[in-house]
């Protein structure tokens, strides 16, 4: 460890672009979507993806720095090189795959669920539904016939249901479960869960094939030895996923 730091410093000092410089990468996340990723009370990135990311970086022998970025601009900023990966609960979709590349999934496809004020029993297909901008949920609602209201952050989508602007909110089940539990009965799940999107993968620039290969190998490794299964169980209320 000390030696690598020394070497990196030496490489920096002499201005030689050596291979060791490529060993530091920046991990971009949203930091507003517990339990996937959030900024904890100490002001640091925390959550399921923080632990997965750290485990992957250790396996791939990369030095990772965590940075947060708004969801809206998370893909443009990856493409323009502000950070090297997106690890932010991003489902693998064909649409996104045209712009960036994805690693293999580190979280299985998860149904999305609706949450509304407790006691709501309206018809969701004609309702006003809130979702976060540029998410699989937003495009699902837009094509389903329901009225879509979009918000920049997950927080605002839930607030829209609370203040009556939307009848329901559609988001990943794990995110909403926490919110429902914390609402003291004010909010409740409603309607049937919908299966949209593939699993969650790490977004990487299309030109960055080397990093993609490294991460794919690391993901295969944490799947094989059960590390990933344990992390999913830890952050998603004991959910069991077999790899």
């Amino acid at each position: 460890m000390k030696l690598t730091t020394l070497l990196t410093t030496a490489a920096l000092a002499t201005g030689i672009a050596s291979a060791s410089m490529a060993d530091a990468i920046r991990m971009g996340t949203e930091g507003a979507y517990p339990p996937y990723n959030f900024v904890n009370d100490a002001g640091e990135v925390d959550g399921f993806e923080r632990e997965v990311g750290d485990a992957l970086c250790e396996r791939a022998e990369l030095e990772c720095t965590w940075v947060t970025n708004d969801w809206d601009s998370i893909i443009p900023n990856l493409v323009s090189g502000n950070y090297d990966t997106i690890i932010a609960g991003m489902s693998i979709t064909d649409e996104r795959d045209e712009v960036i590349d994805f690693t293999s999934e580190y979280f299985p496809p998860d149904p999305s669920t609706y949450v509304a004020l407790a006691g709501y029993d309206g018809d969701l297909s004609g309702a006003v539904v809130a979702a976060q901008t540029s998410t699989i949920q937003a495009s699902y609602i837009a094509s389903s016939g329901a009225t879509l209201v979009e918000f920049a952050t997950p927080e605002e989508t839930v607030a829209a249901v609370r203040n009556g602007e939307a009848d329901a909110v559609l988001a990943d089940d794990a995110f909403l479960a926490d919110i429902v539990n914390a609402s003291n009965g004010e909010l409740a799940f409603t309607g049937e869960p919908v299966s949209i999107g593939g699993g969650i993968g790490m977004g990487i620039r299309e030109s960055d094939t080397e990093l993609k290969d490294k991460m794919n190998a690391a993901i295969a490794s944490i799947k094989a030895d059960g590390t990933l299964t344990a992390l999913i169980a830890k952050w998603f209320d004991g959910r069991m996923v077999k790899y």
Partner: peptide, 15 residues
């Protein structure tokens, strides 16, 4: 879609 420069030209450097 990508804007790619060599590692040494990154501003600031990745490390």
């Amino acid at each position: 879609n990508d804007f790619v420069v060599c590692t040494a030209a990154k501003m600031p450097l990745g490390i």
